[in-house]
Amino acid sequence: MQIPRHEFPTRNALRILETRTKDFWDDVQDLRDEPSCFSNVLADAIGLFCRQCVVDPEADKVETWEACVAAMQVGSALFESARATTDAIECRIGHEMRTIRAGALPRAHAGNWLSAFWLACICREKKRMTELCQFPAAQLRQADGVFDEYIYHWVEALQAYWLKRPEFGDKLVAAVDGTDPGALRHAPRDGVLQIMYPPMNLLTQLTRGDQNKFNTELAKTLEWHKYYWTHDEDRERDTEGLVALGPLGVCCLAVQAGFTITVESEYLPKHLLEGAWLNEFPHITPARHPGI
Rank of each mutant, 00 (worst) to 15 (best):
Q134C: 10
R124E: 12
T130R: 15
R124A: 10
A102C: 05
R128A: 12
E96L: 11
G103D: 07
A104D: 04
A104H: 05
L158C: 12
P188I: 10
L132E: 00
T85H: 10
R165A: 07
W118K: 02
L140C: 11
I89V: 11
T179W: 06
G191N: 04
P188T: 14
D180N: 15
L158Q: 11
A138I: 10
H186D: 07
R141P: 03
D87K: 14
A137C: 14
A183Q: 14
Q142C: 14
R98T: 00
E90W: 01
K126D: 15
L172D: 06
C121Q: 08
C91G: 00
A88Y: 12
D148F: 00
M129C: 15
V176R: 11
Q159D: 10
A116H: 02
R128E: 08
I100Y: 01
I93R: 01
C133V: 05
A108M: 01
H186G: 00
L140K: 01
T86H: 08
M129I: 15
D144K: 13
A88D: 11
A175Y: 07
A160P: 08
D170S: 13
Q139T: 05
R92L: 10
I100K: 03
I122Y: 03
R124K: 11
D148E: 04
F135T: 06
W118E: 04
T99Y: 02
R107M: 10
C133F: 06
G169E: 15
R107H: 05
V155Y: 01
L119C: 06
W162A: 11
D180I: 05
T85P: 00
K127W: 13
A157R: 05
W162D: 08
A157I: 06
I151W: 00
A102P: 04
P188Q: 12
A187Y: 02
V176A: 10
V176M: 15
F135S: 09
E149Q: 15
K171T: 03
R165V: 02
D87C: 07
C123Y: 01
R185E: 14
G191C: 06
L172Y: 08
L172E: 12
D177P: 01
R101K: 13
H153L: 04
G178R: 02
E167A: 12
A175I: 12
M97E: 13
V155I: 07
F135L: 09
A137P: 03
F168I: 03
A187C: 02
V176F: 04
A116L: 01
G111Q: 13
D180Q: 12
